[in-house]
Simulated assay, not measured.
Amino acid sequence: MDLNTAIPVGEMALRLFAAAVCGAALGLDREMRGKAAGLRTNTLVAISSALTTLVALELYWDLARHGDEGRMDPTRVIQGVAQAVGFISAGVMFRAGNSVHGATTAAVIWVAGALGIACGAGYYLLAGMATALCLLVTVLFTYAVRRLPVATRSEDRPEAQPED
């Protein structure tokens, strides 16, 4: 097994662990609300996104060591991960009559993927800020919406499409 990597093994472990923590934070919130995609889903999406980013960076730097860096663009991984996570996210959304359910859960899964990319690339501060902001939105906004008068809540209007 070749441990001669561009990113030190300890740094790789830290990036994967940071992705797991960010994904778990989002997933725990969804789990506590009884949503379909919770702790495990969001944690695994974040880890897989970080892993894919790490592999792309390692492949790029391995090619660069051999003078062939022009054949690969590691930023393409971001596009691929975003598409794959979008596909997973679409799976948790469903329409029932005039209502759409699971949109917030789908958005959180997409954020978990982006957090994994950020952690995989080593942008811990960015990932931490985004995790905190996402939790602020999902927790604080939930309480704020519940305090709105019944007639103004989107889920109480038949023509509206609630998130979940």
Rank of each mutant, 00 (worst) to 15 (best):
residue 63 L to G: 04
residue 93 M to D: 05
residue 6 A to T: 13
residue 48 S to I: 05
residue 101 H to T: 13
residue 48 S to W: 04
residue 114 A to C: 14
residue 55 V to I: 15
residue 60 Y to S: 08
residue 29 D to K: 14
residue 46 A to D: 01
residue 63 L to E: 12
residue 58 E to S: 06
residue 40 R to L: 06
residue 22 C to M: 13
residue 49 S to Y: 04
residue 70 G to R: 13
residue 116 G to A: 09
residue 96 A to C: 01
residue 42 N to H: 15
residue 13 A to P: 00
residue 40 R to D: 04
residue 92 V to K: 05
residue 20 A to L: 11
residue 35 K to N: 12
residue 32 M to R: 15
residue 122 G to D: 11
residue 30 R to C: 02
residue 22 C to A: 15
residue 91 G to Y: 06
residue 11 E to Q: 14
residue 74 P to C: 07
residue 111 V to C: 07
residue 30 R to T: 05
residue 35 K to T: 04
residue 40 R to T: 08
residue 92 V to Y: 02
residue 109 I to K: 07
residue 64 A to N: 10
residue 25 A to S: 15
residue 37 A to I: 12
residue 67 G to M: 04
residue 94 F to E: 06
residue 108 V to E: 01
residue 105 T to L: 05
residue 85 V to K: 08
residue 121 A to Q: 13
residue 116 G to P: 06
residue 55 V to A: 13
residue 50 A to D: 03
residue 104 T to N: 15
residue 74 P to R: 07
residue 8 P to A: 09
residue 112 A to L: 10
residue 39 L to E: 01
residue 120 G to V: 10
residue 78 I to W: 05
residue 30 R to V: 08
residue 62 D to V: 03
residue 40 R to H: 09
residue 64 A to T: 06
residue 46 A to S: 15
residue 43 T to H: 03
residue 107 A to T: 14
residue 99 S to I: 01
residue 108 V to W: 02
residue 49 S to R: 12
residue 102 G to I: 01
residue 106 A to P: 00
residue 50 A to S: 12
residue 49 S to T: 09
residue 113 G to V: 11
residue 22 C to T: 10
residue 62 D to N: 14
residue 76 R to C: 09
residue 6 A to G: 07
residue 14 L to Q: 06
residue 101 H to Y: 15
residue 46 A to G: 02
residue 85 V to M: 11
residue 100 V to C: 08
residue 26 L to G: 12
residue 66 H to K: 14
residue 72 M to D: 01
residue 6 A to K: 01
residue 97 G to K: 11
residue 120 G to M: 10
residue 83 Q to V: 14
residue 99 S to G: 02
residue 103 A to D: 06
residue 28 L to P: 00
residue 100 V to N: 07
residue 59 L to P: 00
residue 104 T to I: 03
residue 65 R to A: 09
residue 13 A to F: 06
residue 51 L to G: 10
residue 69 E to A: 15
residue 69 E to I: 09
residue 41 T to F: 00
residue 72 M to P: 00
residue 22 C to D: 08
residue 15 R to C: 00
residue 80 G to K: 12
residue 106 A to V: 03
residue 28 L to R: 10
residue 9 V to L: 14
residue 47 I to Q: 04
residue 95 R to K: 15
residue 74 P to G: 05
